[in-house]
Design a binder for these strands. Structure first.
Length: 433
DNA sequence: TTTTGAGTTGTTCGA
DNA sequence: GTCGAACAACTCAAA
């Protein structure tokens, strides 16, 4: 099972849409590959006699290294290079502190008031063209589209591009924001914004979302909007953390987690990746990810907890799987999510957090609607039993066409026992000064 | 953005 | 009608 790179598929669509948008105002997208960004930009600047280059300011270590190299290369040919914070509500570097925040609530209390009411400037309708256009590689030459074509599930679910992003934002603000915050926790309800890939690819900015949320409404709507501002707050926090702890995408913020007696069980890992753990909510989530390149956040937490706690597999392995399969795979958000769930990162909880996959299903998918959608072999099981097929009476299973161990697996671990094993392994880790 | 188990209180039901 | 066992419902602390 190789990697899928859902986000490569997205990037292809995103670049195609950008090129179309640019062409509509008299410009076009130039694609160059095969060398470092610094060399390629140096070349392009010579080809076009450009005097000034601007770019978005990055956050990840790779982006920052690239910016430095580009800056050096452009200065050498006396071209100005300026970077701007376009990705975040608040630039992480302006938050002055002796030691960086490590807990979300304290971070957001300090940073939310700094989110200014930035003025929005409309995109220009016309762009100046050079006298001759520099050569561009074809978009297809980047090889971003999967071969063989497995992207049908993605095409059915998503439309990349700025226009689609604006539409998704409008639809969300008009509709889902008015719904009960509880509904947004239910994976079957489809009430989340689904804006994450647009935010990741810069087809939508956090400021645009922030402003869209800032509008009059009932008390319930304002509460709901506040919860969503908090989600943007988590996104800010994730980028802030990665900026301050550039190694955290690979290393636990709490080093004692390296001394946990992790398991490296490839069979269990594979069962998790394929959605064949025997826990219906976990399997539904993992299959949603595989089919659509996305997973509901509530379920992300549950499957991550299952991998790290129930299977005792290091969070980095799960993070890599998400990285390869999510269309919204974002280094900062992915890192924070996994470190938080593993408990080795930015979490103020004084206890080891272990999700119970059945309890989560009872709370957030009580009717088994989400499970039925992604685990069709269980679809005919009546409602209480679909959450715990291994406890269903043989007759009920037979009537639903479920043959445990054949059409659907028995649980690969017993959750209560796995929980105890995890708690023991975690408390046995070596905490050094 | 959690779960579990212990302890307490409340309810039911049969003798 | 009363008593007490059994169990459900609830709260709370600890991991």
């Amino acid at each position: 099972m190789g990697c899928r790179r859902g986000k490569s598929w997205w990037l292809h669509g995103s670049l195609a849409a950008l090129d179309a948008d640019l062409r509509a105002c008299g410009s076009r997208l130039i694609i160059r590959g095969g060398a470092s960004a610094a060399d390629l930009l140096g070349q392009l600047v010579r080809d076009t006699a450009a005097r000034y280059v601007t770019s978005e300011r990055g956050v990840t270590p790779a982006e920052r290294a690239r910016e430095t190299a580009v800056g050096v290369s452009l200065r050498a040919v006396r071209v100005d290079h300026a970077t701007f914070n376009a990705r975040l509500l608040v630039d992480p570097s302006i938050i002055e502190r002796a030691s960086p925040f490590r807990v979300y609530s304290a971070y957001w209390r300090a940073v939310e008031p700094l989110v200014g009411a930035a003025r929005q400037i409309a995109a220009p309708r016309r762009l100046l063209s050079p006298s001759t256009w520099p050569a561009s590689d074809a978009l297809d030459s980047l090889g971003l589209l999967p071969r063989p074509d497995w992207a049908g599930g993605l095409r059915a679910t998503w439309q990349p591009g700025e226009a689609a992003a604006a539409q998704a934002l409008r639809a969300f603000v008009d509709g889902s924001i008015s719904c009960d915050a509880d509904q947004r926790n239910q994976p079957a309800a489809d009430r989340t914004s689904r804006l994450s890939p647009y935010l990741h690819f810069g087809e939508l900015s956090a400021r645009q979302v922030w402003q869209a949320l800032d509008r009059p409404g009932s008390a319930a709507q304002r509460r709901s909007a506040n919860v969503l501002r908090g989600e943007l707050g988590w996104r800010e926090f994730a980028h802030y953390l990665l900026a301050h702890f550039p190694l955290s995408s690979d290393e636990s913020l709490d080093g004692s987690f390296d001394t946990v007696d992790w398991r490296a069980d490839r069979t269990d890992l594979r069962a998790w990746q394929r959605g064949r753990t025997g826990y219906p909510l976990i399997d539904a989530g993992m299959r949603q990810l595989w089919q659509t390149g996305w997973m509901h956040n509530r379920v992300r937490m549950a499957v991550a907890s299952f991998l790290v706690k129930d299977l005792l597999i290091p969070w980095q392995i799960g993070a890599r799987w998400f990285w390869d399969t999510l269309v919204d795979a974002d280094l900062a958000n992915n890192t924070l999510g996994w470190q938080w769930t593993a408990g080795c990162g930015p979490d103020a909880a004084p206890f080891i957090r272990v999700f119970n996959p059945t309890l989560q299903a009872e709370r957030f998918d009580a009717e088994g609607e989400f499970i039925r959608r992604y685990v069709p072999e269980l679809a005919n099981l009546p409602t209480p039993h679909i959450l715990e097929p291994w406890k269903a009476p043989p007759l009920v299973l037979a009537e639903a066409g479920v043959d445990l161990g054949r059409t659907y697996p028995y649980p690969i671990v017993d959750h209560p026992a796995a929980r105890k094993r995890a708690l023991a392994a975690f408390s046995a880790r070596v905490v050094s000064g």
